[in-house]
Design a protein around this nucleic acid. Structure first.
Lengths: 205, 205, 205, 205
DNA sequence: AATGAATGAGACTTCATTCAT
DNA sequence: TATGAATGAAGTCTCATTCAT
């Protein structure tokens, strides 16, 4: 049974690799990168330690591949701006998708925030994340302007905070809030901010 | 050749202990708890590894003491609700103080967020943090109601998100924003949200 | 290039584990548990320190496994009382076996006495040893009675002392006595004590 | 109060030294030499660690001094053979004194046996102990002969075993036996052995 | 005489990684 | 492809000992 000959090798490889990444993501997200050992991953994936090194060069490489994969499959999907201009529905869709993504890919997003706070773990993707972030910001800015806001910069900042805060809450307090409520409240607040500044109030600090 | 007095010893102890905690906080915040070794702390503090164990029972104990200390000296100060009711100025002061605190105690707050995402590292303080958090939420809710908001729950959620998002931005993107701007924009957005529900705008400072 | 079969692995494990236990017993017996380091064991066994932890959970675990093993393979054999009653030959066999066992398993018995004097090192087996000891005492008592002794309690005590003393001498002064002489003298003394109470002497072998 | 000038220094020194030795003996006997730390000794003696090194050169030195002291004050007293010949009463007194000494100096004798089993801890006194032991053996032999034993060698061996076993029991099972009973039984057995061999029985092995 | 802060060697233990099979 | 025994560096922690005061 030992020397297998078949053309499905590549398929098996891909499945094994994905299995390892899935398990590793779960453990990294739950316990942190440094607190997760190769042994743990191997045991949970029900394979040997050695096999992992058949698919990945190092423990760090697992993290990098997870990040690359998640970046392509999760982060990149957060883009509704196909034609460069966001309609109102697209904006709503974007907010909704972002928060739902966090809810559904909890593990990745926990890892994402961990990496944001300890950027030296994985320097290679910092720039990629930043670029994508700027792109989103630009997209939002254009939308706010298109909605007739007279203080688009202020609104952009506030909406960014709102969204960031919302995702954080989804991640850290899932038992306190329903995701749907969070989505609704966030969208609602966004529009109240945009529409409100047509008769904005000034106060100094 | 008299031995040092116990007062002298106590002084030395306090100074050295604080030194270790300062250095450890810096490294924990920068690299994470697990990625920071006792050796690194010792080297950076310019003392021997062994000495650290004269002051702390374990690496975990260092973290606990840092957390305890920071909790008492940083987190607890974020409370302007001395009499149970927040005035408008106190609310503004609270927002301002929160964001400034994050800006000024960047290291602690990075550690705080890391611990939020890996709560198993330090279980002892989770409850304390949660309790404090709930207290703040209650305080904010009362303020929003006192301001005549017709949708206080919605506003509370939105303001919580705003504040959380703002602190996160202060921590992670200090080069993109001026803290003063963040403070101003956050306060501004808060009031726009609250006042928006009344369809009027008459808050002065 | 097939992987080893699990049978092969099991073989390797058993051999290596026994090697470590043999070496550790030797060093524990010679230098004491606390004075023996994992490094010493590894060096003497010609393996790496790390490998030891592939087989044992801790240094204490090595001691426990040695003790468990020795208990089953050495201590438990000191029982000739298969049917609950000791014949004269069985008694002689028991004395002989006990002393020979000490002579042949010098290392274990040195460790045994060390543990008797520092019971806190290994609390798990104290009870087991005690139970076995009481069983032996009971067996001896019955034998002495069966031999018609008029002072079985006195004889039991004396014979216990004799045997304990004999084993101690075998352990500590092997160069002063021949084991065979010790065996003979001990048996001789036992019977002299028993028969003395009857003022007769008629035991053959 | 610091620079004291007095002639009682030497007295204080002796008292302190004895205090340290007492505490150290207690801990060594209870936990073993290696498992006892200088810190423990200092704490239990209510002095500082540093002070110990004012009186002893090293941890090993403490052990040596304890052993020297105990040898002179405990072990050496086990000698009733003032004039080279042991009377019957002196023999009884010797047995009694030996067992009582073990009972009363439990800590030292536990340490003694620990050192017997791990002689490399303290090589300097091994010879001294051995010499003393041989002297006692010689004394006993002469007594046995003087009592008219026809098999003095056999008796000597048996009595040695008896005594060794008795001391061991006193040390390890103090709750099972009354020391007085042990003394009585041991003396009784000794004389039964000596007197019995006037009509000894032969059996082969 | 007395203190305890400070050191550094070395203890136990973990773990990423290699390698023979 | 797959295994897990094996390694060795590095981590946490302990402790005998030194030393300034």
């Amino acid at each position: 049974m030992c020397p297998r000959s078949s053309v499905q090798f590549e398929e098996i490889r891909q499945e094994k690799k994905q299995l390892i990444m899935d398990v590793a993501l779960e453990l990294f997200a739950e316990n942190g990168f440094h607190a997760t050992s190769i042994s743990q991953i191997a045991k949970k994936a029900k394979i040997s330690k050695g096999l992992i090194y058949n698919y990945f060069e190092s423990k760090n490489d697992i993290l990098e591949e997870i990040t690359r994969w998640a970046f392509d499959n999760i982060y990149l999907q957060l883009d509704f701006n196909r034609d460069g201009i966001l309609t109102k529905d697209e904006f709503i869709g974007f907010i909704k998708a972002t928060i739902k993504s966090v809810d559904e890919n909890r593990q990745f997003w926990k890892l994402y925030f961990a990496l944001v706070f300890q950027p030296q773990i994985l320097e290679s993707y910092a720039q990629k994340y930043t670029d994508k972030g700027l792109e989103i910001v630009k997209m939002l800015h254009e939308f706010i302007v298109s909605q007739g806001s007279t203080t688009p910069e202020k609104d952009l900042v506030a909406i960014s905070f709102l969204l960031k805060g919302a995702t954080l809450i989804v991640l850290t307090s899932p038992h306190f809030f329903l995701t749907n409520d969070i989505v609704e409240d966030t969208i609602d607040a966004c529009f109240r901010l945009i529409s409100n500044n047509k008769n904005t109030c000034h106060h100094e600090m």
